Computed example of a mutant assay.
Amino acid sequence: IEHSIYQIMKEDSLLYCLPKEPLQQAFRTNKLSVQGTVYGYVGWIFCQHFLERLGKEYLFLIHILDRRNPVGEEVLEKLKKRLHQDTFTREYILDIRKQYPSLLKVLYAHFLTGHYVNQAEASNQPTISYKRLTAMERLPGEDLAKRIKEVTTNYHERLVFEGFLCFNKHVLKTNLYQTTKVALSIRMDPSFLDEIEYPRDPYGLFLVYGSEFRRFHIRFSDVCRGGIRWIRSREREGQSINVR
């Protein structure tokens, strides 16, 4: 009974952090656990912001266009903006994610294998989360990448789920499995950032998800000022773009 209560406490803390999530139907139909549902949400947000959209063709254009020419610079900026806004929208990524619940489950098992922490304190009895882990299909990173290529039907679908795999590989710390929390926090290894879009490597990258917000904290040294800030868009158009 104590372990069941402990599991309910963990899952309640996640529901408090993220009460509204597009994958909740998968939880209601028992296709995903609460943790798996939250993982799908966090990976979805990660892909919205950090999915590789520019490609080798954009890099080729950078080399052949004279960036000292204002016209060439303007063309590159407009192309970059369109690639970000029109290729992988939040709705498009969500639709792709919903098409493959079994693949998402395997990706979550890969994440769980690397980041699950048993906080059942003094007891050595396995928690319900750990029992779920042992019952899941678990694949190493290389085999999982092959599975993604085999299951998906086109390049866009493969790119989205490779984004989830990239997320798994670069998570350093998370409070996902802690019992008490008011927001979900994840520290990332920033080495995955694209050099074209992020020419300066940050020291630390933190993603924070709450019931009413999604925030980033980026620092360029071990000690820095500030924390999570909310910057409102000046115009409705800007807000519609930044909401992703």
Rank of each mutant, 00 (worst) to 15 (best):
E2D: 13
E2H: 03
S4N: 08
I5P: 01
I5M: 15
Y6C: 07
Q7I: 01
I8A: 14
E11A: 04
L14T: 00
L15A: 14
C17R: 01
Q25G: 11
A26M: 09
A26I: 00
R28H: 12
K31T: 04
S33N: 09
V34Y: 01
T37M: 15
V38M: 12
G40F: 05
Y41P: 00
Q48D: 11
L51C: 05
E57V: 04
E57C: 08
L59K: 10
I62V: 11
H63G: 11
R68M: 13
P70F: 07
G72K: 00
E74F: 04
L76V: 02
E77I: 05
K81T: 10
K81M: 12
D86C: 10
D86T: 04
Y92K: 11
Y92L: 15
Y92D: 09
I93C: 14
I96C: 13
Y100W: 06
Y100S: 01
P101N: 01
L104M: 13
V106Q: 12
T113N: 13
G114S: 10
Q119W: 06
T127W: 02
R132M: 11
M136V: 00
M136D: 08
L139H: 02
P140S: 08
D143W: 04
T153K: 12
F161S: 01
E162S: 03
G163V: 02
C166K: 04
H170G: 05
K173T: 10
L176V: 01
Y177N: 05
Q178C: 09
Q178S: 06
R187H: 12
R187V: 10
S191V: 06
I196T: 15
Y198D: 10
P202R: 06
P202N: 11
F206H: 10
R215A: 15
F216G: 05
I218F: 03
I218C: 14
R225L: 15
S233P: 05
R236P: 05
R236L: 15
R236V: 13
Q239H: 08
I241S: 13
N242M: 14
V243Q: 14
